[in-house]
């Protein structure tokens, strides 16, 4: 299987605080890879480094063969980020938000309209396309946020806590959507919800204090921790077996 992302000793330090210790791992193309951990584990910092928002302190990463330290502009064309907050323009309509992102990515007016139509249809946004971003419910704002990230057909998508604060129905709807996306896109997802990681991810990396504590499929992690279920396995890894 070809690698989508190869971390090569990538680390991040903020003055004296180590946010991410040197990390080496490979995320495969077509994989839905989960980053799991308690607050301050370093998940978002890792995503920020991979998307060029934060400069690594040491190491490098290859994103679809491009070096993060040397070829960031090329990498920016290959990946997209849907940040933790909804990050939409509140006074623009759903359609305008999508059109704007397409134009910012350099598509012509005609192509931008075409892409906007396609995403409105793909995400079933038709009933809300003329509604302003700020007037949408939390679930629809998240859907729009992910649709905006997909406007340039990224090969890798980073979803940072995509279902944070959503009700169970909206969460399930988003899960279904993410499951569809995995057919065409490599997805790296951070989440606090164990059932979300368990339900969606091919492999999961459990992080604590900027370090990898465990890596594998849900079944592998349960077996390694010698536990009955994934929640117990997760607690085992983040507490070092103390709980």
């Amino acid at each position: 299987m070809n690698a989508a992302i190869e971390l090569q000793g990538l680390s991040k330090r903020f003055k004296e605080k180590v946010a991410v210790s040197p990390m080496t791992l490979t995320i495969n193309q077509g994989e839905l890879f989960g980053l799991l951990g308690v607050n301050g584990a370093g998940k978002t910092t890792l995503l920020n480094m991979l998307s060029g928002l934060a400069k690594p302190s040491t190491g490098d990463a290859l994103v679809l063969g491009h070096s993060l330290s040397k070829e960031l502009p090329s990498i920016r064309k290959l990946l997209a980020v849907s940040p933790q907050e909804t990050s939409i323009a509140p006074n623009l309509s759903v359609r305008e938000n999508l059109l704007l992102m397409a134009r910012i990515h350099g598509f012509s007016k005609e192509k931008s309209i075409e892409k906007t139509e396609a995403l409105i249809s793909q995400f079933s946004l038709q009933p809300y396309e003329h509604q302003r971003g700020k007037n949408l419910s939390g679930g629809w704002q998240r859907k729009l946020s992910i649709a905006m990230a997909l406007i340039a057909d990224p090969r890798i998508l980073f979803l940072d806590e995509p279902t944070l604060g959503l009700d169970i129905i909206s969460r399930r709807e988003l899960w279904a959507m993410i499951n569809k996306l995995r057919e065409t896109t490599t997805i790296v997802l951070t989440t606090h919800y164990l059932e979300e990681a368990e339900s969606l991810c091919d492999r999961i990396c459990i992080m604590k204090d900027g370090e990898i504590k465990a890596l594998g499929t849900v079944d592998e992690l349960i077996i390694t921790a010698s536990k009955e279920n994934f929640e117990d396995a997760f607690v085992h890894f983040v507490t070092g077996g103390e709980l």
Binding site: S51, R76, K77, V81, P83, Q84, S87, I88, I104, M148
Partner: peptide, 14 residues
């Protein structure tokens, strides 16, 4: 900045 819209835009070619 507060809604992370700027972060989204910083990952584009802007």
């Amino acid at each position: 900045r507060s809604t992370s819209y700027l972060i989204r835009l910083l990952t584009t070619p802007m």
